[in-house]
Amino acid sequence: MENHNSHSPSHDSHGSMKSYVIGFVLSIILTIIPIAIVMNDMLSKQLTIIVILIMAGLQFVVQLFFFMHLKDEAKPRYNTMALVFGLIILLTVVAGSIWIMSYNVVG
């Protein structure tokens, strides 16, 4: 408990009102774009999937920087390390699944 002290002034930045609002607006925009495209059948199936994936990737970045404060982290950068490891696992999960499942297509 010693190091977990809610009374002393924290050295971690918790962001400002402005950055939270920007992050909030950005993530709403990034959510509305794919919904609009899907609901109105605006693009071909292939293109729709690509747009959704790009928006999801951007959403991820917005969350990390505006809400998770990745760039304000003090050393040692455990969060960044965890993120890098997480991305490696994510890549393995996605690429590995595509590779394995390409042999296992159901009729």
């Binding site: 999960v93 590995g96 699944s97 499942m101 296992n104 297509v105 159901v106």
Partner: peptide
Amino acid sequence: GGNPMMYINLIWM
């Protein structure tokens, strides 16, 4: 359009 083998792939991850 489902694929039960995908579950096996995921659960073992």
